[in-house]
Simulated scan of single mutants.
Amino acid sequence: MTDFHQDGRAGIDADLVRRLLADQFPQWADLPVTPVKIDGWDNRTYRLGSELTARLPTAEGYTAAVDKEHEWLPVLAPALPVQIPEAVAKGEPGQGYPFHWAIRRWIDGDTASRDTVSDLTGFARSIAEFIVALLSCDASGGPVAGAHSFYRGAPPEYYHDETVEALAVLKGKIDTDLAREVWEAALASTWDRPPVWFHGDIASGNLLVQDGRLSAVIDFGTSGVGDPACDLVIAYTFFEGSSREAFRSAVAQDDGTWARARGWALWKALITLAADRDVDINRQVIDEVLADHMATRTP
């Protein structure tokens, strides 16, 4: 069995998708198969004609999302204010490809960015509206946070060792004492209410816009039920100033949840910066998180 993730996603290409369609979904075998312009790491996505997409996990760790999304996307969709992926069919391993895979309905839209979003403050409110609607969905029987969600929705303590190691690597490069204080504040807080739905990766790459406004939220692979703090991270990675305050006000979460949100944002920025990747972006996120934490300190 090929490890597609370790082998740089080798073997996943348009020809494989054509062969899988011919074997398993002959009704779509004649559709043109083209890679999408902006693709992720966890999955490779191909457009099938004008109406469908094929989404293939790149490693075994990402395959749990196929069944989860196939079951729960139809349940969540009616309660959410914007479009989310529509599960059309679920594929089986075949043609040398070892994992289950998904066919979804194509969603039009541009990936969210400072260039494609016309009103950042309005956009922040729209994201908050989506999160609040998701929180209100019935979580009964939903997938409890764990390995399938890469522990989004669980306490951030799962990533404590990684965070401590990153802080050691970055000593002298950032204010590691203050960063450690932020992390300890995140660990000291807990979600003490019933579990709720979370998306797990509300980031610009998973947000689509049309005419400058939020039109869809995609990629529910890390979704589940648990603590929603991880869904607030976009406050530090995409918003700032008035747009962050609009988001904070509209999403209406308590101080403890924001402490854990800062922990989630800090963890990811620390480990990425420690690996010397996306240096400027992650330094900025760390600075924003530390400044926001400082603002919460009592005189």
Rank of each mutant, 00 (worst) to 15 (best):
Ile234Gly: 01
Glu51Ser: 15
Tyr151Thr: 04
Ile281Thr: 13
Tyr158Phe: 12
Gly11Val: 10
Asp219Met: 04
Arg105Gln: 14
Gln24Thr: 00
Leu178Thr: 12
Arg180Leu: 14
Val225Gln: 11
Ile127Thr: 14
Ser149Cys: 05
Thr2Tyr: 07
Thr111Arg: 13
Ser118Met: 05
Val144Ile: 13
Gln27Tyr: 00
Pro57Thr: 06
Ile12Asn: 01
Ala166Asp: 08
Leu20Ser: 01
Ala64Lys: 12
Asp67Arg: 14
Leu21Tyr: 02
Arg152Ser: 13
Leu120Gly: 05
Pro81Leu: 05
Trp106Ser: 00
Pro98Tyr: 05
Ala250Asp: 07
Thr63Trp: 03
Gly221Asp: 13
His199Asn: 15
Gly263Asn: 06
Pro78Val: 01
Asp201Ile: 03
Val225Asn: 08
Leu73Trp: 09
Gly256Phe: 09
Lys268Arg: 13
Asp13Glu: 04
Asp7Glu: 14
Asp177Leu: 09
Thr298Tyr: 05
Ser215Leu: 10
Leu178His: 10
Thr298Gln: 13
Asp23Leu: 10
Leu135His: 15
Thr2Ile: 14
Ile38Asn: 12
Ala250Lys: 15
Ser242Ala: 14
Phe123Val: 07
Trp28Asp: 06
Ala54Val: 13
Glu162Phe: 10
Leu208Asp: 10
Asp138Pro: 09
Leu21Lys: 01
Gly205Val: 07
Asp254Tyr: 06
Val233Ser: 12
Thr163Pro: 02
Asp276Ile: 02
Arg180Glu: 14
Gly241Pro: 11
Leu52Met: 05
Ser149Asn: 10
Ser242Cys: 03
Thr53Trp: 03
Val182Phe: 08
Ile286Tyr: 13
Ser50Tyr: 06
Met294Ser: 12
Ala186Gly: 14
Pro32Arg: 02
Gly153Pro: 04
Arg262Cys: 05
Ala265Ile: 08
Val285Trp: 13
Phe220Gly: 00
Val217Leu: 11
Met1Glu: 08
Asp110Leu: 14
Val82Gly: 01
Arg105Ala: 15
Trp72Pro: 10
His148Glu: 04
Arg18Ala: 13
Arg260Leu: 10
Arg180Ala: 15
Glu165Val: 01
Leu120Ile: 09
Leu232Pro: 02
Trp28Ile: 03
Ile131Phe: 01
Ser215Lys: 08
Glu60Ala: 15
Tyr97Ala: 00
Asp219Lys: 03
Thr2Gly: 01
Ala65Pro: 11
Asp3Val: 06
Val182Glu: 07
His199Thr: 09
Ser149Lys: 09
Cys137Phe: 02
Tyr97Arg: 00
Pro74Thr: 00
Ala185Val: 00
Leu56Met: 11
Arg114Ala: 11
Thr45Glu: 03
Gly122Asn: 07
Asn282Lys: 13
Trp101Asp: 00
Val75Tyr: 13
